[in-house]
Simulated scan of single mutants.
Amino acid sequence: MVEIKTPEQIAKMREAGLIVAEALKAASEAAVPGVTTGELDAIAKKVIEGHGAKSNFLGYHGFTGVICASVNEEVVHGIPGERVLNDGDMISIDCGAIVDGWHGDAAVTVFVGGGHAPELHALSATTEGSMWAGIAQVKKNNRLSDISRGIEGYIRRQPLPPRGKYGIVEDYGGHGIGSAMHMDPHLLNYVDRRRGRGMKLVPGFCIAIEPMITLGTPKTHTLADEWTVVSNDGTWSSHWEHSVALTEEGPFVLTAFDGGKAKLAELGVTVAPDPLG
């Protein structure tokens, strides 16, 4: 069953979301050549613990990090450690936090150093743009598949990169979030008509929207560490994520500092008031 939250519970999720946003900001700013992914993990951990919150990644099914640090062809779930970031790398940083039992979860793609090919910038921009297109569909009486359609439709409308294509990763997607990090419903980043339109969106519905796109195949496999997911053809990937609540007044992005106001305004969507007032 899908968990529907009260305004008070959404407010707690907003507290967690703001901590996630701060942790991602700190880790992203520190993602420079010569830094290890383990050092980024320590930075995010300090932010989370400094707010009296808990990491929802650390210990999750035995995961050893506070962040997932996925570099280049690594799509998701990269384990932070001794890997040194090099100039020209691209890293997805995924992070979560818990406040009084309520969860936040978000991810960003960061460019390390400079000199990245235009197609990599386009890949990240397309992934991020598709996430916002999906968030814009979090409306009362819309269906779950409307979010999927918003994501896929945005990607399909973008010009293809000169030396590749956009592969929408099929084995991973968004998820419900609230009293647990991963809950029903599962959200596809593409439309599968065999699944129907999905549940109707109602106030109190919360979802983590997270498109993952590669410059080639949508197919992935997991490395021997049993966590790190990589593209089958070795093409680089991008991953963006936000946790979103639907309230009586509309959507609110729990893990964005401004609640998604600026980005959603570009799409003609007005965000709900901040749950924290």
Rank of each mutant, 00 (worst) to 15 (best):
M1V: 14
E128Q: 15
N56Q: 11
I177A: 03
S179I: 09
G167F: 03
A245W: 04
E152G: 03
S55M: 04
V2D: 07
G178L: 05
F111R: 01
M212R: 15
T235A: 06
I4L: 10
P211C: 02
V230A: 12
T6V: 05
R143L: 05
S243Y: 03
T222R: 15
T214S: 14
S231G: 12
L120C: 10
G17I: 00
F257C: 11
T36M: 01
G178C: 09
D192R: 06
C68T: 14
G52V: 05
Q9F: 06
Y166K: 04
F205A: 00
R163N: 15
T228H: 10
V229E: 13
L254A: 02
G176V: 08
Y154S: 00
S92E: 08
I67L: 09
K5I: 13
A11R: 00
A26K: 08
D225C: 12
I10C: 05
Q137G: 07
V169A: 03
F257H: 12
A208M: 15
A53R: 05
A107K: 11
K165P: 09
T127V: 06
V76Q: 09
M1L: 12
A106L: 10
K5T: 11
Y60R: 13
W102A: 08
S28W: 07
G277C: 06
Y60P: 06
R83W: 10
I67H: 10
R156N: 05
H221D: 14
L187R: 00
I48G: 07
G52T: 09
V269R: 01
E8S: 13
I4M: 09
Y60N: 11
A224C: 12
R156W: 08
E29F: 10
A265W: 00
G134S: 05
H221F: 15
P7K: 00
A42M: 10
L187E: 01
D184I: 11
T37C: 02
A125M: 11
L123Q: 03
P33C: 12
T126R: 00
M181W: 08
I168R: 04
G216A: 10
G81C: 12
E210I: 03
A26S: 15
W132A: 04
A11H: 01
I151Y: 04
G65M: 03
V76M: 15
L18H: 13
T235I: 04
V191D: 06
V229R: 13
P203E: 01
T214M: 10
